[in-house]
Computed example of a mutant assay.
Amino acid sequence: MKALIAGAGRLGTQIAAALAASGYEVVLVEQDDEQLAALAARPVGRVMPGDACEPTILEQAGVRTADLLVAATGDDEDNLVISLLAKRQFAVPRVAARVNDPDNGWLFDQWWGVDIAVPAAAPLISLIEEAGGVTDTVSLLTLGKAKVTLIETAITERSRTAGHRLADVELPPGTVVATVVRDGTPMVPAADTALQAGDELLVVSTAADENDIHGLFQ
């Protein structure tokens, strides 16, 4: 399975790391020099410099053989253009797109080639407070064909796994913690990684849902 991620910011690199951990061949397309330099320090797949709004760049990145494209730039117009190109010109089976401005959410539908609209706030769940508590676990997206779900959970001071090693958490079969984001920096965790309040975990699973992951970590 091949995935093309347009935009190598926080969401893009998180998804790329999760897909790579689940066996995807990942290509990241990015035009910003600072982001490209950051990718060189923490590679999560093949990197294609360039503007993903350009069909020739998408072709060079392998869009014609991609099973999934994620438009994860910080610009809604770019994400819509990328999604439309992916679906209409290159017939990518599954297209997900980041919605940066909630007012633009109504545009992110199949008319623009978007199968999955991903709210920009979704990965920042540790900062989202609701009446009665904190929303600590959300399902970011489900890749229907591959039956893989990407789930994020935030470790807080109230989480029972805070201070415990990742090895102490008995994960269900087909489930892996692909990325731990600590102080804004994503890393691939080891079994002896001690979880801390403020950590955001990106979990890849073929069986567990967000309720299962919440029960394990919270």
Results as ranks from 00 to 15, higher is better:
residue 197 A to V: 03
residue 134 V to Y: 11
residue 97 A to T: 07
residue 125 I to Q: 10
residue 118 V to N: 00
residue 182 R to D: 00
residue 201 L to V: 12
residue 150 L to N: 02
residue 199 D to N: 03
residue 182 R to V: 08
residue 188 V to T: 15
residue 135 T to M: 14
residue 195 L to V: 03
residue 202 L to E: 00
residue 153 T to A: 03
residue 93 P to A: 11
residue 91 A to V: 10
residue 210 E to W: 11
residue 143 L to P: 01
residue 85 L to K: 04
residue 129 E to L: 07
residue 156 T to W: 10
residue 158 R to N: 12
residue 183 D to G: 10
residue 92 V to A: 10
residue 199 D to Q: 09
residue 197 A to F: 02
residue 132 G to M: 06
residue 87 K to R: 15
residue 175 T to D: 00
residue 178 A to F: 00
residue 109 D to Q: 08
residue 98 R to K: 15
residue 98 R to M: 13
residue 138 V to A: 10
residue 95 V to E: 04
residue 134 V to F: 13
residue 96 A to C: 06
residue 117 A to C: 02
residue 173 P to S: 09
residue 142 T to M: 04
residue 99 V to R: 13
residue 131 A to G: 10
residue 109 D to F: 09
residue 165 R to N: 05
residue 182 R to L: 05
residue 186 P to F: 01
residue 159 S to C: 05
residue 88 R to G: 01
residue 198 G to R: 02
residue 140 L to E: 02
residue 196 Q to I: 03
residue 145 K to S: 12
residue 139 S to N: 11
residue 209 D to M: 03
residue 113 G to P: 09
residue 116 I to M: 14
residue 144 G to M: 08
residue 210 E to G: 08
residue 184 G to M: 03
residue 127 L to D: 13
residue 105 G to C: 00
residue 202 L to S: 02
residue 115 D to E: 03
residue 153 T to V: 13
residue 110 Q to E: 15
residue 90 F to N: 06
residue 189 P to W: 06
residue 99 V to Q: 07
residue 118 V to G: 05
residue 107 L to P: 01
residue 214 H to A: 04
residue 113 G to Y: 08
residue 171 L to S: 01
residue 116 I to C: 08
residue 124 L to M: 12
residue 131 A to K: 13
residue 105 G to I: 00
residue 174 G to H: 12
residue 89 Q to M: 14
residue 127 L to V: 06
residue 204 V to S: 15
residue 167 A to D: 10
residue 167 A to K: 11
residue 186 P to T: 00
residue 175 T to E: 00
residue 113 G to E: 05
residue 148 V to Q: 11
residue 159 S to G: 05
